[in-house]
Computed example of a mutant assay.
Amino acid sequence: MTPKTPVALITGAGSGIGRAIALEAARSGHDLILVGRRLEPLEDTAAQLGANVRLVPADITTPAGRAAVVAAAGDRLDILVNNAGRLAVGRLTDLNDKEIAQTVGTNLTAAVQLTRDLVPALSATQGQIVNIGSMFGMIAFPYFSAYSATKFALRGLSDALRRELSEFGITVTYVAPRATRTPAQSTFAHLVEPFGMVLDSPERVASRAWAGIMAGRKTIYPGFGERIFALLQAMAPSLIDAALTHKAGTARAQAALNSYTRQKEA
């Protein structure tokens, strides 16, 4: 019997890390199901791929959107990449209900629900779940409170599912990239310099992530430095507290934050 071509389903595939991972998956011989809220960006991604591609314009925060994704996957799926996300930045007291709800709903709730709905298809292939988290889910930055909360939760979800779904032969990988140059960067561009952030390209993130995914790694970090910071967070959190509290309180950080808040309110 001829082996079936493996299929990878990627949410948030219209730009950034999602698009770059789609390119990596296509190069490794996977058929693709690309999911996003708008069709045109998905078509732009598909135009760059030399693979069998199905496009699913759907809002995965809705039951109808998730149903469309599940229907596209059918009864077999090899890799699910939960990449779709939203970013809300600013003082918690400046975030409105809608911003918080959209951030939690997209980054966490939709990922939980979509994963639940695709477990039968993943079980059929003893497939793999890949959750795209963030270093903000390892080290929580001030002014990223809602976003960090969702990524910490996604990391916990990954650990729990790895243990829970092992009976079906499903593996789980958590990817923790640092800040990345994507369209969402505009949301926190004003904080890059005050916090001394180092930004990676989506292509660099995707290349490292895909290599780890294919190797079946449980957790993928961007580099050695981030592993050290994650260890410090676990072993000596007061050091991270002091460093980030200092950076958050500098005049440069406060001026950038106040300017961004005024622009958002205008």
Rank of each mutant, 00 (worst) to 15 (best):
P3Y: 11
P3A: 15
P3D: 00
P6L: 08
A8D: 08
G12D: 01
A13F: 14
A13I: 00
G14L: 00
G16D: 07
R19H: 12
A20T: 12
A22T: 15
A22V: 11
A22M: 03
E24Y: 13
E24T: 15
S28Q: 11
D31T: 02
L42H: 12
E43M: 06
T45I: 14
Q48W: 02
L49Q: 09
V53S: 03
L55F: 02
P57N: 00
T61V: 00
T62S: 14
G65D: 02
A68C: 02
D75N: 11
V81D: 03
N82G: 12
N82T: 01
G85N: 01
R86E: 11
V89W: 09
D94Y: 08
D97N: 14
E99F: 15
T103V: 05
G105W: 07
N107L: 03
T109P: 04
A111W: 02
A111N: 10
L114R: 05
T115K: 06
A121F: 11
S123K: 09
A124T: 09
Q126W: 03
Q128L: 09
V130N: 04
G133M: 12
M138V: 09
I139V: 14
A140F: 06
F141C: 06
F144Y: 12
K151R: 08
A153H: 05
A153Y: 06
A153C: 05
G156V: 03
S158M: 07
S158Q: 02
S158W: 07
E164H: 10
S166I: 02
E167S: 15
G169A: 02
V172W: 12
R181F: 10
F188A: 11
F188P: 08
H190Q: 09
M197Y: 11
V198T: 13
V198Y: 13
D200N: 14
D200R: 01
D200A: 15
S201E: 06
E203H: 14
V205Y: 01
V205P: 02
A206I: 09
S207H: 13
A209L: 04
A211W: 00
M214Q: 12
G216T: 03
R217I: 07
R217F: 07
G223W: 04
E226H: 10
E226K: 08
L231D: 13
Q233E: 14
A234V: 12
A234T: 15
S238H: 12
D241M: 05
A243F: 14
T245F: 13
H246C: 14
H246Y: 10
K247L: 08
A251E: 08
N258W: 02
S259C: 10
T261G: 11
